[in-house]
Design a protein around this nucleic acid. Structure first.
Lengths: 144, 144
DNA sequence: ATAATAAAAGATAAATTTATCTTTTATTAT
DNA sequence: ATAATAAAAGATAAATTTATCTTTTATTAT
């Protein structure tokens, strides 16, 4: 569904949201451990995402990644779009380059409904909305 | 969503269903042209799918691929499962190996609903159900 | 039997995605 | 100023997916 890169990205961002409240910042090592991902790989990914402005970072001692108030209001849809592009939201299910209302593939209409449901779900999921459940250990970001 | 392999597979199978009525068979070259796919690649894919019993084939002159009555009743869900595995239907949205009702990832419940909708749609889509629309050119398998 | 046809099988290769390692730059505290 | 810290950047490498090419096997018609 999402690329590995995107899966790591989402987990990392949710983790950062969880750990960067009241001005704290989280380092790459802690993030990698916290979400069970390859350290260097997630570093690369977060670099990219922070350059795009979805998360913030600071270098030097006490540095790390964090989310400001505005970032907490981005949605998973924003992240998925930034990392994997909008193929998931707009692409043809059968990979046709030209597939539209006027030239639909055989599963165009049905697929579109599923895509829209997916999109709605991801748009509703704000980056800041996962912290509480995670703190109560109702949900998890790695295998425990 | 689906792998390229799976996209080609679905398009090819629907094409075969369309062209293999009343005992006819379709050759690889015609299939490749009909769905705009690399000839050798789709050959490999169909080989695999036919070995698994979802489509039939015959060697020699007048040979080719076709769907028997039973095959026409398989669904796209069967094909997707055979080609891409069941990750799409059961996998965790965030790529967690362990993600379940009792140990859910942060988007477990919402994602599950989307997956289920996708699965239902694919299960409903039988291989034989696309022929009519395609013949009327209401839908298409390539860019025209 | 022979030639022609078409899928099956096997061996590679190209492209893309995923991952790792090293060096550089910026920031902080002393 | 200096040392320590942590992200940024760049260069490679491994793994997987996608694609191509060649040889073999089975079938048919003559």
């Amino acid at each position: 569904m999402f690329s590995k890169t995107c899966e790591y990205a989402i987990r990392a961002i949710i983790f950062i949201a969880l750990r960067s409240k009241n001005g704290d910042k989280v380092g790459i090592k802690e993030i990698a451990k916290g979400i069970d991902s390859p350290e260097h790989f997630i570093a690369k990914i977060l670099q990219d995402i922070s350059k795009k402005g979805f998360i913030q970072s600071a270098k030097g001692p006490n540095g790390g990644f964090f989310l400001d108030a505005a970032s907490l209001r981005y949605s998973l849809a924003d992240i998925v779009k930034a990392v994997d592009g909008d193929k998931l939201f707009n692409g043809c299910g059968l990979g046709l380059k030209i597939c539209s209302e006027s030239h639909p593939c055989p599963i165009h209409d049905e697929f579109k409904q599923v895509r829209k449901k997916m999109q709605a779900m991801l748009e509703k999921a704000k980056l800041g909305s996962f912290t509480a459940q995670l703190e109560q250990e109702l949900t998890f970001l790695k295998r425990k």
